[in-house]
Structures are given as C-alpha cells and as structure tokens.
Write a protein that binds this DNA or RNA. Sequence first.
DNA 1: CGTTCATTTGAATCGCCGT
DNA 2: TACGGCGATTCAAATGAAC
Lengths: 369, 369
Amino acid sequence: MTKKTKEAAAPALPLNSILDGDCIDIMNSLPECSVDLIFADPPYNLQLKGELHRPDNSKVDAVDNDWDQFESFKRYDEFTHAWMTAARRILKPNGAMWVIGSYHNVFRMGTELQNQGFWILNDVIWRKSNPMPNFRGMRLTNAHETMIWVSKTEKSKPTFNYEALKALNEGTQMRSDWVLPICTGHERLKNEAGDKAHPTQKPESLLHRVLVGSTNPGDVVLDPFFGTGTTGAVAKMLGRDYIGIEREAEYRAVAKKRLAKIRKFDNEALEVSQSKRAEPRVPFGQVVERGMLRPGEDLWSVNGRHKAKVRADGTLIAADSKGSIHQVGAACENAPSCNGWTYWHYRRDGKKVPIDLLRQQIRSEMRAN
Amino acid sequence: MTKKTKEAAAPALPLNSILDGDCIDIMNSLPECSVDLIFADPPYNLQLKGELHRPDNSKVDAVDNDWDQFESFKRYDEFTHAWMTAARRILKPNGAMWVIGSYHNVFRMGTELQNQGFWILNDVIWRKSNPMPNFRGMRLTNAHETMIWVSKTEKSKPTFNYEALKALNEGTQMRSDWVLPICTGHERLKNEAGDKAHPTQKPESLLHRVLVGSTNPGDVVLDPFFGTGTTGAVAKMLGRDYIGIEREAEYRAVAKKRLAKIRKFDNEALEVSQSKRAEPRVPFGQVVERGMLRPGEDLWSVNGRHKAKVRADGTLIAADSKGSIHQVGAACENAPSCNGWTYWHYRRDGKKVPIDLLRQQIRSEMRAN
DNA sequence: CGTTCATTTGAATCGCCGT
DNA sequence: TACGGCGATTCAAATGAAC
C-alpha cells in the first residue's frame, strides 16, 4: 500500500482504513511505538448518570448531588485513563498527540495527560469566528474550544514545522489562539434525511493546521474517535497515512464515502518552508580552505565596532580574544552567545558582505552534487 | 465603614483591607457563606530550567520566585485542594469564583473545581494582544491564559450582568475569548529600584470585565493571592468591597500604597477596556486552510505574464522564486515590493478574480461576530 | 509640539550534537 | 550523562530620545 519500509518485523499497520470497534480494544491490538501522531476528539457527554449504582444500592440524596457528580466524573476519568493509556502505547517515542475538548472535559483530560507522563507542548485555543450564540443570555457565548498538544514524554523530539506555520500566518510566528470558522455549508456532511451526519464535525481548516504543523508527508496519523473522518480526509490530502477507528456504522459509512472522493495534493504543493536548522552544517574552516577568505584577511563586526583577523585554521583573532567565529563574536559583544556567520563581514568592492553568503555558496555547491 | 447591614450575627468582615498571612489560614478564620465573589490568581507552578535569552542576547526576566516552586504535581494538587476548600466555605450559596492559570496548572485547577462540586459557568480565554514571543522558535507563541468561572454549586444563581458585558462589547453578546493587552507602561507598578514590583501583575482591564460582569456594587470581593492588589484596585473603583490576602510584606506594601490613591468611579478607568477596532490582518495561509484555494492550484499575475503555484503552508512557488504572495509577486516583477493580494488572481468560470476577494470574505465573516 | 526611530520588555515548562 | 561548542532565534506595545 505504501512504499515505506517498516522497521523490524512489526506487524503491518492497517494504513488508510477505517477500523470497526471500540478504540481501546483496537489500539491495544496495534503494534506498540508505531504511530507518529494521534488526533483525538473524544465524547464528553457519556450520559453515564443512568448507569450509576451506589455500592449499597442506596438512594442518592436529591438535595446534595455532589456525590453523584463525583461518581460521574470518576467514570469519565476511567474512560479517559483507558483510552490515553492505549494511545500512549502505540505512539512512537518521538510521537505526539492532540486532544480537543470543551470545559466539560478538557480539564480532566489535561490532568490525566500530565499524570501519565505526556509532556504538554502548547494548549491551543480554537477561537470560532462564527460560534453559536447563547440564546438565553445566561452566559458568555461559548466561542472557543481547547486543544492540548503533547509529546509522548518530556524527552521526545516531536515534529514541529515552525517555518511552515509561520508562513501560514503570513510571516509572523503562529500563536496559541487560532481563529477559524466552524464547519458549515458544503463541508458539513449531511445524511440521507438532510440532517447533519455528525453533531460535532470539525472543520478541515483546523486539521490542516494541526497536520501541517506537527507531521511530515508519509507520517502515520491515527484518530481513535474518527466520526465522519475529517482527520483522515485532511491527512489524505496532505499525503499522510491515516488510521481511523469508529464504532458507529453510520459514521463509518459517511467517512468511507467521503474519503473515496479525496485526492492528494501534488507533491510540489506539499513541500513547506524549511527551517535553517535542517541545512547541513558548514565549518568556517572550509571557507578558508577553499580560498574564499585568505588567512590574514580582516573581518568587521556587523555594527562596525570590532575587527578580527582570519587565521589559517579557520579561527579568528581579535584585540582581546581568539577562537571560533562565534566565540570571538560573543567576546567582542560581551554576550553569552553569538552567531558568527551573520555577525562577521568582509569587504568586497568597498561593500560589507556577511560571511554567511560564503556559507550559502558552499551549501548550493553541495546540493549540486 | 459600609452602610450594609450584615445578616444574622456573623462576625464583621475585614472589608477593604489587606490581610497578612497564609490565605488558607485566613480564609478559615472568616465566617462561612459571607463572600460574593473570589478572584484567585494562584502560583502557576512553572517549571523553568535554565536561563533564556532573546535573539538580541538580552536575558528574559523570568518568574523564579520561591512561591512558584512545587516539588511535584501531587504537592501542587494538595495545595490547590486546600485553598479551594477554604474558599468554598466562605462563599455565599449564590457566590462565584474566578481562577486564572496557564497550561501548567489550569487543568489541575479545573479538575479540582469539578471534584469539589463547583459548577463551571464558562471558561474564558484571555487573548493577549501583545504576548511575549517564543524566542527560540520551538513552539507556538504562548498568547493566552485561561480563566475558569464557577458558581459554588450547580444550584447557585450567580450574578451575571449580561447587558453590561454586551455594552462593553459594542452591543453584541460577550464571547468567551477576551482580547486585552498585558499590563505594561504606567499601570505596571515598579519598586524603588525601578524594577517591576511583581512578576505577574494582571491588567486592570481584565478585572474590570470580570467584576462588571459578575458582581454588583456593594458586593464583597475576596482575592486570596492579592499580590499588588489589582483586584482590590478595580473593586474600589467600581464601588465593590474588597478583601485581600497576601503573605509577602513587599507586595502588601505596594498594594496598600496603590489602593490609597484609587478613587471610586474613575471614568478614565472605565475606558480601559474599550478596544479600538482596526481592519484585522488576514494571513494568506488562512485562505488555503479554509479551502478557498487548494494547494497545487495556479495563480496568475494581474498582467497575466506570471504564474505561481499555491503550497500547503500558504506560500507560493513560481519559476524562479518561492515565498509569500508578496515576495513572489515582487520577484516576478523585479520590484522592491508588491501587494500580493491585488497582484495575484485565480480562475473561476473562465474569469480572473483577485485573491483579495477571498480576504474580504474572511473579514466579513470575522466582522459578523 | 508632532514625527521618527531606537530601545526595552512581557507567567517561558524555549536545542542539538558529539565527546 | 554531563559538558561544551555550534549557531538558530522575536512580536507588539510602550517609552523616550532625537529631530
């Protein structure tokens, strides 16, 4: 199905399919450490109150319902604990998870995430541009939902496409509050009666931002509460593999039909802006070795206040310091650190040119090979 | 001090004063069911490691106070349980409480509130208009804090001044996300050395909205983590009675001095929360996220001479350049700058349409609220 | 006195790699 | 695993000096 080779002899994942059943059982049947990202939109209205029994079958005091509350929360916490435990097992060591909820359940989810050792990366507010108003005027308009983005452990190195999200935000750093419209119009799936197919269908724009920001093409994205398959739809468009789990046949049918129509964007469109951190490292010594700068040549600081001389081994010597381009730059500025590549300049034709230009030349030569 | 007659023979409350000591002990010494509103801004339990420097090498003045240090989540939960229990006892049956926090602590607070039988009315997002950025580009900008607004019980009938908040919001229903600036400038209190008197002083505009919305004149407002007394200052301006509890002598001194200067019904203070409405900036990435243009789709320049392809992160790729709609437009025209919104066009029904039309659609959706 | 520009600052879980 | 070197990384708002 995919051309990717799986590590070791792990059982093959059921990629790009919708699995029928309880998500806890299904996740427990999948190989551990095999999934890159989980997006989870669990139910919060479990309607557990009808099933409640006190151990001694005594009647619940109608005046003080605290006990009732507690029992209901306890059931919900058990459910949350169970599915998060199953989810955590199948996540790769550097895997990450997003959960979404409202004030009814999100605090309990956040607490359980922390208790299990997930590491919170950000909480993100989906600020709805067109929320349902509060008709009775009894409360504030509930105009947002909360997402919690976690990595499997504190030590994990989850995918974060910083530059791509920055580009999505027209050049400024993406914030933790996202203004996006709710799912309406053509995007909102209808059943045969013409009613909405699912009560809480999420907009594709929300998943687009999540997946562009925290996955790469070819990653495996699992959604344990698949519903009508928004996660799968956006994953497919973006060239990620998806696994959906959904126990309601009606939702599975809608999702299957939806996904069959989705086409992947072409590869060029899927490339996103890369961080400089992904570029190969170039030692400054190479600049000297290649004769782009000559030993003995002077470099000037970006502000023009400091001067240093290039030595044959690729180190610099200034009035009060010697060492790497970074060390001497930091010493000149009396700063804790310094990027020597952008700090130091050389002169050509009377102009000051950053030495970073030379590094870019070397890198483009490296790419040509 | 006040003309209100207290019910029954309850001991008099220490109104409009700052109490010295641990808030749990002090609250336990106050009469039960005597306070209308509690605003609580407890330590967030930030878990900061080393120092952090900005790209310009200046050092970030972080919250490193002893009062924010906890050994473990367990210890923090014990602390939270204790102060919330004490707070609940002194609340009137129809009383309410606001707590504020970040992702470090807010989930644990929300869980404890629910466990104790508090009833969540709304969670409210304070969207900071000028947050501190993420300097290392490792995460999303942490641009918000979360407040949880609860009543003492599910049966409580807490004060909610719907019309007043609607008026504050230019005539439309107040939403659960509040855009307000952080506390800076003259409002930010300084100590004698000229440094900030408290690391986490809240803006008066935030408390103004809280107190206008959920208290009436003459109500008793208690703040167990008083700090430099923003809650007391706004309560006094608005004609509410305050009780502050603060165990740090330095903060008490600053608050006392501050409160002495406050006058009730200061019109200038009432204007604080009025926000000016500017044309919102719309990143081109939102057009892509919302599916108004699809990754891979072609755009044409206004003169028809250049073509570019849309990528998933909202950047364009043309024959010789890639980047934002503005950058690629400028490159195509070999111009220093270019307004991509009017330069680039897409095709619909054989006609060329400027992408600015899509931006106008998004803006009109945003205005609709 | 108004405009412009440089400087400062804010609740922050803020790196990766090789030795 | 602790340490040190490389080298990547910031936005909005307010202040205050300069013009």
